[in-house]
């Protein structure tokens, strides 16, 4: 009985009697969710354009953040902080674009037309390489990323919100808006959608697959950079950053592999669910439920809606 009480009654009682605390937890969850969404967004972009399930997205975030902090240490020659930040950001963007070109040339191009699992494993190999290169170039100790972003806490009617989280949310929102415009209004965006729809048809109307892949991987690199910066300024740049890739997977499942809004909403749901479960159901399991909650949620969800919230309906023919 005690167990059932703790499972079914007490958490809800806590939520009702401490509404402010509950809201604060939800807000915290939303903010964590924004970061998941950012990583998931990178996945969706690449999956849509090349059908590659890019496991290296998390490592790309780590790599971008490592490069940024490394550059900032090396180039700190007495110029004003904001100039240093902008310079290093620009350089990191260049690095990510070069990375996209290299990946397209040496990994994707030889693997055209291979099975999905092979491509997936190749990106896993890529994540090993990136991690090794990042650690080798910039060292593997935990780094502090200081971009001069505000770090205080806002008190909104008794609910505490971290400013950094708000900035992350705004950045994510802006990013999605820019991407939406990019995908629907520009020439390249339309080419991207054509490639996503059908590789061969796109080729036959003169769209260069290779060029498109470079662009997509660059954009995914930028998304990774934003995610890496946000996550890095929150909890330091370290190896665990690459593990958020694993967290982004259930987000994808929930939202559907092919949907950008799905990635965002899935991320928010997972973020909130995780935090609420961690905080309010703490008594029964002794913590660390964050490790698996998202996966279980995705698993249960898949039973009812295999294509995710916004994914394309899966139709199969023999």
């Amino acid at each position: 009985m005690d167990f059932l009480y703790e499972l079914l009654v007490q958490p809800f009682a806590d939520m009702i009697f401490e509404p402010l605390f509950f809201i604060e937890t939800v807000v915290k969850g939303l903010m964590a969710g924004v970061l998941y969404s950012l990583v998931a967004l990178g996945f969706v972009l690449i999956f849509k354009a090349s059908g590659v399930f890019n496991f290296a997205q998390g490592t790309m975030a780590l790599f971008a953040a490592l490069t940024l902090t490394g550059l900032m240490e090396k180039l700190d020659l007495g110029m004003p902080h904001w100039m240093l930040v902008i310079l290093c950001l620009a350089l990191t963007v260049v690095v990510m674009i070069v990375l996209a070109v290299v990946v397209e040339r040496f990994v994707l191009r030889p693997l055209v037309n291979q099975e999905l699992i092979i491509l997936f494993m190749a990106t896993l190999g890529l994540s090993y390489v990136l991690e090794g290169v990042g650690d080798l170039a910039w060292g593997s100790d935990v780094k502090v990323l200081d971009l001069g972003l505000p770090e205080g806490v806002w008190d909104i009617g008794g609910v505490f919100v971290e400013q950094l989280d708000v900035i992350a949310a705004v950045a994510a929102g802006g990013m999605v808006a820019v991407l939406a415009v990019f995908f629907s209004k520009t020439r390249i965006g339309r080419a991207l959608r054509a490639v996503a729809d059908d590789h061969q048809a796109a080729l036959s109307v003169g769209i260069s697959l290779q060029q498109i892949w470079v662009i997509v991987w660059s954009v995914a690199g930028l998304v990774a950079l934003v995610a890496g910066v946000m996550w890095g300024s929150k909890s330091g740049v370290q190896f665990s950053l690459s593990l958020i890739a694993l967290k982004a997977l259930p987000v994808l499942i929930l939202g559907g592999f092919t949907s950008i809004p799905g990635a965002i909403i899935g991320g928010l749901i997972i973020g909130v669910g995780e935090k609420v479960a961690e905080v309010f159901w703490y008594h029964i399991h002794g913590g660390a439920v964050e490790n698996w909650f998202a996966y279980m949620l995705a698993l249960v969800f898949l039973m009812f809606r295999p294509q995710g919230l916004f994914g394309d309906k899966i139709i199969e023919r023999v």
Partner: peptide, 24 residues
């Protein structure tokens, strides 16, 4: 050893990619 660990990561990753490309 620490550097070797990182180089090992790079080598393992590239070997896997090379393998997949040459003999999937």
């Amino acid at each position: 050893p620490v550097t070797a660990k990182h180089i090992e990561f790079i080598l393992v990753g590239s070997l896997i990619i090379i393998f997949l490309i040459n003999e999937p």
